[in-house]
C-alpha cells in the first residue's frame, strides 16, 4: 500500500475515548487528494470528534493521523479549519477583516503583527465569499450566513491543501448555502481536499463526490456512488444509534433521503 498515491488524509485505527468511554472506535480513513467529502452520521456519532482529532485538538487513545504522509504537527500549514459557528462569541469586539486575518496568524508566527500583505490576502478571501463590503463591520452585526462566510474566508486565507469544516451549512439561508457549495467545489477543482461534517442527507449526492458514514465506528468511506447506499445508511442510522432519542429524527430524515 505504500506504493499507492499519497493520501491527503489518512487515519489509522483511531480510537478516541472521553472519560474511558469510546467516542470513536478504530476508525480507518483514506481520503485521496482533490475530493469533496461529507462526513455523515447521527448525533453523537463522533463527527466533530473525528475532525478535532485529525486536527490534533483531541488526543486519541490509539491510532494515528497522517496529512499527506506526515503527522499533523509537521503539516499544520497544509490544513485549514472551519469550526462550528456557535463555538465562538459573535459579540466579541472585533471586525470582519480582523477575524479573517486570524487565518494568517499561523503563518505570521509569534508576536509579529499582521502587515499589509496579510490585510490584502484577507480582503481577497473576503471577495471570494462576497463579503468585501463588510470588511470593517463589527462581527455581531452579521447574519448567520454572513458569519459562516467570514469563517470560510478565514479558512481561505490559510491557503491550505486540506480543509476540515464542521457544519458549514448550519443555520445558513439557501442563497448562502449555494454560494458555499460553489466555493467548496471550486476548492476541489483546485486540487484541494475538503472534508465537511454534514447533516442533510438529501444533498449529499448533489454536493459531494466522497462520503464517510460514521457512527462511533466507520461504517463506510469512499466515492458517493459506491458508498452512499441504503444498506450503509441503515447501518449508520438504524442499527447502532448512539443515543436512542435521536434515532427517530434520524430515521425520518433517512426516509426523506430515500425518496430521492
Amino acid at each position: 500500500m505504500d506504493n499507492e498515491e499519497i493520501k491527503a488524509i489518512r487515519v489509522d485505527d483511531l480510537t478516541v475515548a472521553y472519560r474511558d468511554k469510546p467516542v470513536l472506535w478504530d476508525i480507518d480513513l483514506n481520503v485521496p487528494p482533490g475530493v469533496l467529502m461529507a462526513i455523515v452520521g447521527p448525533n453523537g456519532a463522533g463527527k466533530t470528534t473525528l475532525i478535532k482529532s485529525i486536527l490534533g485538538l483531541v488526543k486519541p487513545a490509539a491510532g494515528q493521523v497522517l496529512i499527506y504522509g506526515k503527522p499533523y504537527q509537521q503539516q499544520r500549514s497544509l490544513v485549514g479549519y472551519v469550526p462550528q459557528r456557535e463555538s465562538v462569541d459573535w459579540d466579541f469586539p472585533t471586525s470582519v477583516l480582523d477575524v479573517v486575518m486570524m487565518g494568517r496568524y499561523g503563518i505570521i508566527g509569534w508576536i509579529r503583527r499582521p502587515g499589509r500583505e496579510d490585510r490584502e490576502l484577507a480582503m481577497q478571501a473576503l471577495e471570494k465569499v462576497r463579503m468585501q463590503d463588510f470588511a470593517n463591520r463589527q462581527i455581531s452585526q452579521l447574519s448567520g450566513g454572513q458569519q459562516q462566510r467570514v469563517f470560510l474566508a478565514r479558512a481561505l486565507v490559510q491557503d491550505a491543501k486540506v480543509y476540515l469544516m464542521d457544519e458549514p451549512f448550519q443555520g445558513v439561508d439557501a442563497t448562502t448555502e449555494k454560494a458555499i457549495v460553489e466555493l467548496l467545489q471550486q476548492l476541489r477543482s483546485d486540487g484541494r481536499t475538503v472534508a465537511v461534517v454534514h447533516h442533510d442527507l438529501q444533498t449529499v449526492i448533489e454536493y459531494f463526490d466522497w462520503v464517510t458514514l460514521l457512527n462511533v465506528r466507520s461504517i463506510a468511506s469512499g466515492p458517493v456512488a459506491e458508498v452512499f447506499t441504503d444498506e450503509n445508511l441503515h447501518l449508520t442510522y438504524a442499527g447502532r444509534v448512539a443515543f436512542s432519542r435521536e434515532s427517530k429524527e434520524q430515521k425520518n430524515s433517512l426516509s426523506d433521503g430515500d425518496k430521492q
Partner: peptide
C-alpha cells in the same frame, strides 16, 4: 478506575481493531 479501565480499554481496542479488519484483504 481509570488505571483499571485503561488496561481493559486497551484489550477492547485490540479486539475491535482485529474485528474490523477480519476477513478483509488488508
Amino acid at each position: 478506575r481509570h488505571a483499571r479501565n485503561r488496561w481493559e480499554f486497551a484489550l477492547w481496542t485490540l479486539a475491535v481493531h482485529l474485528f474490523n479488519h477480519e476477513n478483509l484483504p488488508e
